[in-house]
Design a protein around this nucleic acid. Structure first.
Ligand SMILES: NC(=O)c1ccc[n+]([C@@H]2O[C@H](COP(=O)([O-])OP(=O)(O)OC[C@H]3O[C@@H](n4cnc5c(N)ncnc54)[C@H](O)[C@@H]3O)[C@@H](O)[C@H]2O)c1
Ligand SMILES: NC(=O)c1ccc[n+]([C@@H]2O[C@H](COP(=O)([O-])OP(=O)(O)OC[C@H]3O[C@@H](n4cnc5c(N)ncnc54)[C@H](O)[C@@H]3O)[C@@H](O)[C@H]2O)c1
Lengths: 227, 227
DNA sequence: TATATTTTGTGATTTGTTTCACATCAAATC
DNA sequence: GATTTGATGTGAAACAAATCACAAAATATA
């Protein structure tokens, strides 16, 4: 029970994802081991940071020998519970939901959208690899597939109500695309993805960059954009 | 030229977006002024944080009287250059690109996708509010509409090459949905949106949360998920 | 007009994160 | 097998962000 109390900060988690993507690429290229500075170069962080991050997750390499890519990837799989499959539900088969339902990378990473849901009977006829159910079957499916995580792609106005329903049926984590802050119990994880904000912040930085033209240490202006 | 050297950190920028969304909502409800703790309550941060953030952007309120919502919103518009319109191009009209091209919130925030592009002649026939051009017209459109920011929704494999092209034509900021780290000159802003990672991090936190069931200060586990 | 109250704005302090620096070890070389 | 070399791993130091605490100001009240 000890190490559970230790929480992992979003930024280092994000960097770990970066490292992993890079490792996968290197592996495909036939590379078998890496040094912290290889990963650092590829991902735009410092090698210290790479090692510190690894140490945070208790990942060990070989002094002088660097890290074995296979070991590294295996360790990461365990850390991220990727040996198991993860069943997901997707609510809202509008423009965005439809795109997400067709996204093949989720499956490649063992994250399976087992079913999608929409309130609109018309949407329920969408020809797709995935079934589109009416909301009345939500509980049944969540129970059957032991779903713990949901993707929420319904309009702003319905987001809270749908979230409440999901949580009532046992959902513990939501990736929320609606631009609202959901009110949820403290044992439910919400990850808000707000694409307007993402676009707007780029515009903001670009403008400042243009105004600051000629500034030496431009990277200071947007150093947190890195990942 | 003084204040330009001061960079704004992504987190405080994100919080400002939160405050703004909240202010817009309150305004619609007829509210005219707020206190830092009102905003704090609504957005789940502390009132100190709200005031510190405001002070970072040089936003002033009235001692005892709080903040006037209209002034606040106006100030924010200026800070975010929202008095001007911003022309955007969208590259890649696949599943995701199509959804994004139909997203009405961008326009509501003065961010106009003026044209979309795809290499696939078939995609160029998509019936949509927006024109879908072949890549050969990219330079022309970027010049004509003085576009500085692009949304990149092409496959991983083409992302770098398309980014290079965009930058060659003068694009200074990219919201990149392809799961690759683009190599770009230091005066170009990249904002990577990696939806797999977003989903996976929720799964990670949910799992740890379930394991840590009964832990007092659960919020520690995912405090950086807040916004 | 004086006093109490309430909220802002910001240095000071605490807390958190990254970078530095170097001991430690494993391999390569002599 | 001793010595050099080159990498890891991690406390210590430096830096950055969030919280605290309180003076200053504006309003309400007496
Ligand atoms: N389209 C985009 O590219 C995009 C980008 C970023 C964010 N978003 C956000 O994602 C959400 C969905 O956007 P969209 O463009 O797909 O909208 P949309 O209107 O195309 O789709 C919403 C879908 O949700 C369904 N729905 C509505 N109420 C529901 C309910 N109570 N239960 C179940 N389903 C319900 C609707 O029938 C519809 O099919 C919105 O909150 C939007 O702000 C969209
Ligand atoms: N579909 C999703 O929900 C989703 C979610 C997250 C991330 N992404 C990422 O977004 C990107 C697009 O995803 P998608 O699902 O829409 O893929 P897609 O294959 O449906 O669409 C990609 C589009 O890009 C076009 N294209 C390919 N090469 C091009 C080039 N050189 N120049 C211009 N256009 C080109 C293709 O013709 C196609 O229309 C991918 O990198 C994907 O990993 C997609």
């Amino acid at each position: 029970m000890k190490q559970i109390t230790k929480y992992i900060v979003k930024n280092s988690l994000k960097r770990i994802f970066l490292y992993r993507a890079c490792l996968v690429r290197l592996k495909m290229m036939g590379v078998e081991k890496v040094f912290s500075y290889t990963l650092a170069n590829e991902t735009g962080v410092t090698s210290d940071q790479v090692r510190k991050d690894f140490s945070e997750f208790n990942i060990k390499g070989n002094k002088r020998g660097g890290y074995d890519i296979n070991c590294l990837l295996e360790k990461m799989e365990t850390i991220f519970h990727r040996n198991k499959d993860h069943n997901i539900v997707l609510i809202g088969m509008g423009n965005l939901g439809l795109a997400l339902s067709k996204y093949s990378k989720f499956v490649q990473r063992n994250m399976n959208i087992v079913a999608t849901f929409d309130i609109d009977p018309f949407k329920q006829k969408i020809r797709s690899d995935l079934p589109v159910y009416s909301m009345s079957r939500l509980k049944e499916i969540i129970d059957r597939f032991r779903v713990k995580v949901a993707i929420l792609a319904v309009p702003e106005i319905s987001a809270q109500q749908v979230a409440d329903e999901l949580i009532r049926y046992g959902i513990k984590g939501i990736v929320n695309f609606a631009p609202v802050l959901l009110k949820v119990p403290s044992d439910v994880i919400i990850n808000n993805v707000n694409l307007c904000d993402e676009l707007e912040s780029v515009i903001y930085y670009v403008h400042n960059l243009i105004k600051a033209d000629g500034l030496k240490n431009i990277e200071l202006l947007y150093r947190d954009m890195k990942y």
